[in-house]
Design a protein around this nucleic acid. Sequence first.
DNA 1: AAATATTGATTAAACGGTTAACATATTTTT
DNA 2: AAAAATATGTTAACCGTTTAATCAATATTT
Lengths: 341, 341
Amino acid sequence: MSSIKEIAKYVGISPASVSIYLNDKNSTRVGAKTKSLIDEAVLALNYHKNVFASSLATQESRIIGIIIPTMLPLFQNDYTNTLLSGIQTRLSTFGYSMLFFPSSAKSSIEIVKEQLEKSAGCDGYILFSTGFCTMEQIRKNITEIQKTGRPFVTLNIPSVPERIHQVLIEGLETASGIPFLVSKGHRNIVLLLGRHAGVHARFLKNDYKAYITTAGIEYDENSIIYGEYDAVRAYSAVKEVLNSKPETTAICCMSDIMAAAAIKAVQESGHTVPDDISVIGRNNSLHAMLATPSITTIDLNMHQAGLSAANLLLDAVDGNTAPQKIIISGTLIERDSVAAR
Amino acid sequence: MSSIKEIAKYVGISPASVSIYLNDKNSTRVGAKTKSLIDEAVLALNYHKNVFASSLATQESRIIGIIIPTMLPLFQNDYTNTLLSGIQTRLSTFGYSMLFFPSSAKSSIEIVKEQLEKSAGCDGYILFSTGFCTMEQIRKNITEIQKTGRPFVTLNIPSVPERIHQVLIEGLETASGIPFLVSKGHRNIVLLLGRHAGVHARFLKNDYKAYITTAGIEYDENSIIYGEYDAVRAYSAVKEVLNSKPETTAICCMSDIMAAAAIKAVQESGHTVPDDISVIGRNNSLHAMLATPSITTIDLNMHQAGLSAANLLLDAVDGNTAPQKIIISGTLIERDSVAAR
DNA sequence: AAATATTGATTAAACGGTTAACATATTTTT
DNA sequence: AAAAATATGTTAACCGTTTAATCAATATTT
């Protein structure tokens, strides 16, 4: 791999001139003849700029670090992928690269620390939440990332106290399928959550309770079941609850995948969706569209959230320091998996 | 952000000692007392190593560049995500980061060029194929990447002539659902392809033709339809073919998403799957498992392919230069969407 | 013809971290 | 007690690129 020095030697000029030309092809500080000689040399010597050296010199890398404090494999989760897709779309149009870090750690804070260890030099960060963390862990993560002194945006981390750039997906803390099902006349509604622990789970449980009780329905702890955002586990959880609570008329699922699994479970228990049991999903993923019957779901607008996060960060990188909080709200997509009672 | 120099000044020693200790906590070249002083300073000054400076000095970045020559948004495609997940899993356990580059270009070669422009300094690359490219474009891409002089692995790029590291997903060039359907007694089989153009499409069409004719079935060009790997388009393509070729008894789909869409189309045309029409998918994604009926599909083992690609590259980065070709083969997953005739 | 601009280059010092080579003090060995 | 080994540091060059500060030659203005 050739360097600027070699180009300079090849052409017979100083490295400075090469750098100047390469960074601004219209520069008046390099003569026309020299310019074409440099072009020639670049081709002849296969020159590619070393971004790291360049970043070091300019103190700007045009690289954004993506911090996802999870030990699960990446790119396997519908939510995360949609978010990432939005982020990438926006970053890409502004010429920014995305860097994903490795981590061998087992706890959320450790992961963030490890990832930041390898990251100083990025122009900014996007910090993902993961359903696993406790509020305290999240707060520690944020302090950790603040220490870098670089701009960052938290994505989908509820009730961050500090005044920082953040994008919130309103629907994530909200079991908004519940009031919809209530409005359709349902009174025996099972809530199919993802994780047991973590901030999101707590929010959702509270939310469910509030909705249920204001509707004058008795709250039953056993109406909350868990599917770990996994099709197989959701399937068996639903099968179980169908036995233990046969009065159930609706299932409110925290992901479309779990909703699709729920439908399978309902059907294979000899009932039909939506006539016997209604099912509502979340995320408006392809799964919701393709299921039979197609699934009524809540579009969290995660792609938009990703775009907004990238926008916010890019602003912050440009020096706009006033902390902003962007709230993305969900929209109900009515399809065929919910019937009125 | 503090530097090694500041740490050194804080402790009252030379930057070299700090660097030596930070890179090897057990180094005998730094005294125990000094070690703890450095630790203290690191915390006090919020030191984070600048990877770029470090990469520059060591000529090793522990960053792998991921080159995906597509203008579509990333992280939206089942295949690509599974592959990426495999790659990330392996790279992460060996402490490597993944870098995704932006691109504004419109052609595959331009994209690769642009991305490499921003990438020199990576320890290696993984070059994805995308169904869009022609063989010539692919070859140009490879020359382009070879010019960097860094190790690289091509992923899922069929018949690469050069002797380079490569991982091939056998099933991708093969319409292996066809012989299976034939063996089940089907003779009027529609092939639902993704893209019209590109290498893969050509391979698949040939493959289909070969299977069909050796089975003694007359080849009909109209039996090949296109769904662009998109649920909506696949749905309408299937609806159409059900009209134009009512004798159809089976549909061989090149993705599970298209298979799920096909099932919808079949059902909404008043037929049942698999009794009237059999459907086979590809990729063994969640869609195949969750559809009703669940979809018989071909698992391409893409995750394994990702792992292998990462392995290969890591070997190459370590100086193992003998080019290897790894072939990942598919496995049939029988479920409920195919019936015998 | 002197003063002023313009053009096309160069020099040298960063950026932050690494590392081979060298230096000094302290222990251990003989 | 001298020689050898060990422990603990330091110096200084280098990685590849950028950029403020200069400089020299040529062109333009007055």
